[in-house]
């Protein structure tokens, strides 16, 4: 684990430094080369944004924690639903044949259209955030898990078969563990999405949340462009946080993967 971390660290650092450099050069160019009078509105300096973030840290974190708590709840429900749907589909060909098209269609409804509908039905921003986060989570989780279940090695199934193991044992001891890496990559995709979903609902109108901050600073200029950017960056960090947490959980839950090259599932 530490070895892979060591090899990843320089790359990550290079990326971070690169982004900072490009941002600062861009902001500097707007002011000094293009002499744009709206420069600080369009692209404020990154160091200014960081300063504003530090000054407003407490209020940003208050909003962020509201968003994260709703997103996390939706993520949890969505993951459970996605996992259960995958198991049920794998148990029965017929269920899969009937349910699968619905899964695909469900992804064709634009979330931008669905969110107001749900919001209108439940008439409550808190519930709507949880529902939309769950809705956006279940799909990658169920599709990845189902893919994992279907790619169980035939020899391993034969081994369980030769022991006359029951269906429950085959799932518990073979199918679910071997689908775990796939489930995990579904969760990694879903975690940032669930945050995005919560923010989307917040923009439709809730009392608190990082999405509310983004909306207010954008339209009402409260705190200016720097504050808007500070809110956007905070929300991006929340998505990244979700991804990192799932990756850490993966390392803890699947110690046998740490020293091997990852097998399957990573980009399924």
């Amino acid at each position: 684990m530490s070895a892979s971390l060591k090899s990843k660290l320089p790359v990550a650092l290079a990326w971070i430094i690169g982004v900072i450099a490009i941002w600062e050069i861009g902001a500097w160019s707007l002011v000094n080369i293009f002499h744009d009078p709206m420069a600080t509105q369009k692209l404020p300096f990154l160091h200014d944004i960081v300063r504003v973030m530090a000054q407003n840290w407490a209020s940003l974190m208050d909003s962020a924690s509201v968003t994260v708590s709703k997103a996390a709840l939706g993520f949890l429900y969505g993951s459970i639903a996605g996992f259960v749907i995958a198991i049920v589909m794998s148990l029965s060909r017929n269920v899969e044949r009937v349910a699968f098209p619905y899964l695909i269609i469900s992804q064709m409804i634009p979330i931008l259209g669905l969110a107001p509908i749900i919001y209108n039905i439940v008439k409550d921003g808190d519930t709507a955030r949880v529902v939309i986060s769950a809705y956006i989570t279940f799909f990658p989780v169920s599709i990845n898990t189902l893919g994992g279940i279907k790619s169980v090695e035939k020899d391993r199934l034969d081994l369980m078969y030769s022991y006359a193991a029951g269906k429950f044992q085959v799932y518990r001891k073979l199918i679910i563990p071997s689908a775990m890496p796939y489930l995990m990559s579904g969760l990694k995709i879903a975690a940032p999405l669930s945050v995005t979903a919560a923010i989307l609902v917040e923009m439709l109108g809730t009392d608190e949340g990082i999405g509310v901050k983004i909306l207010y600073t954008l339209y009402y200029g409260a705190g200016g462009a720097t504050m808007f950017w500070a809110s956007v960056i905070t929300s991006a960090l929340l998505g990244i946080l979700g991804y990192v947490l799932i990756s850490l959980a993966e390392k803890l839950l699947m110690p046998w993967q740490n020293t091997t090259s990852k097998r399957g599932g990573e980009d399924a």
Binding site: D155, D158, L159, L174, S178, M254, W256, T260, R263
Partner: peptide
């Protein structure tokens, strides 16, 4: 013919 172990 191959070991067929569970890697977890």
């Amino acid at each position: 013919q191959s070991p067929v172990l569970f890697d977890w």
